[in-house]
Design a protein around this nucleic acid. Structure first.
Lengths: 222, 222
DNA sequence: CGTCCTCTTGACGGCTTTCAATAAAAGTGG
DNA sequence: CCACTTTTATTGAAAGCCGTCAAGAGGACG
């Protein structure tokens, strides 16, 4: 069933807008390669990046509630994307209850991530927000690549980092630079190395991570 | 099926903590009366209120992903709460696919709400955040009470409003007071009246609201 | 009737934004 | 592979929004 969803990938260039806020949005996507971000535009034109998407993510699910998408989705890098209609979701809910419950768990995981980001934007300093963004990102990458070290590609401009953390690009620059001077991170090209995750976590005011998905309550495999 | 979930309500006093962050959390709740809020505590002790819960809400769903709850839940007023085990959810996914899809839509609606709040905290002023909180609240109340006017009970202290909007209680006071002086809202006791929703929406930098739930893709009723 | 919580107000300081200018890097077309 | 353009990164100075600190008033509750 899952394999069927990942048929016919589509190739998209960096900068491509996959979906625009308020578009009719019946499609879902699975990211096969590359990074994307979903974002909202406010009345004054400012942008808030809500979520980063990496390979393996199921995205575009907001179209399952209301016909109009609540957020835009765009490519941060060149991307390979698999598309399917939300009618396929119906089939999953009808014929594959365990898989449906897993999809539900994905939504709950997204909620948990947004919860954490909300606390970061609402209650922590610029320095803390950037540390939190880096830690969240490496954590997510490690779910896909468990043997990932402390170094990873991070294809965001400082302006995009600002839009993700609620800061200006100028201040992002100062804070990143300060983190580097303090020996907490190192940068080269679009790659970041976390030199002291323990201390970064403290700076980010991070609550201790909880473990893996709990599949105990799920329906039995069909 | 739904009626079965709302059996045996439990009465809780204002201030009661229903669930604590990192607790084992297998239960779900449906709010029958009263308001609650879910929140996270950060490393430095500051609090971020993530979500307000009103009668009709299905809450505590984060426990369906990981054994440890990611957020705490507490009562803002005296509350009447219906509890059921998440094993019941399994039954829904197996035997009631349409209902399961509706539960999934609820999670997506929560995601959309959090998305909007994230943009509010990340990209708007103190004045805008408070306007946004009031508008979001009245919109949600209207989903349950369509004939609600412009006046509603709002049982949050200014400190709690601050924790919801990422501001200090002192500054919340100044902004609320300013909104009242500008003829945008009126207050008495724990009740708020929105005097000019159009202008409030502009101040809040709000994206235009999208319509009702789209149930077109859902499985047919059993 | 006292205590605690909540609301209110003023002064001051700091973190972040804004404005502006330059350097460096990346992308483009010849 | 080289000019040229556009994007991105970097740095400084000044202003502003919001936080912190402090103190007092009003209400709720026991």
């Amino acid at each position: 069933m899952l394999a069927r969803l990942e048929a016919q990938p589509r190739a998209l260039r960096r900068g491509t807008i996959v979906r625009r806020q308020h578009d009719r949005a019946g499609d879902l996507f699975i990211v096969q390669q590359g990074w994307l971000h979903s974002f909202t535009l406010l009345g004054d034109g400012s942008r808030q990046i809500v979520r980063l998407h990496i390979p393996g993510d199921l995205i575009g699910t907001s179209g399952t509630v209301q016909a109009g998408a609540g957020e835009s989705i765009a490519c941060l890098t060149d991307v390979s994307l698999c598309t399917f209609d939300r009618a396929v979701l119906r089939g999953i809910f009808v014929d594959h209850p365990r898989l449906a419950a897993l999809v539900y768990q994905l939504a709950q995981a997204d909620l948990a991530a947004l919860t954490e980001r909300l606390a970061s934007l609402g209650r922590t300093s610029a320095r803390a927000r950037i540390a939190a963004l880096l830690l969240e990102t490496i954590d997510r990458l490690r779910m896909v690549t468990p043997d990932l070290g402390t170094r990873f590609a991070f294809p965001l401009t400082q302006e995009e980092i600002g839009d993700a953390t609620g800061l200006t690009a100028v201040h992002v620059n100062r804070m990143i630079r300060a983190l580097a001077e303090d020996g907490l991170i190192a940068r080269s090209n679009a790659t970041v190395t976390l030199l002291d995750e323990r201390r970064l976590a403290r700076i980010a005011q991070r609550a201790p991570r909880t473990g893996a998905f709990d599949t105990g309550w799920l329906p039995d495999p069909a």
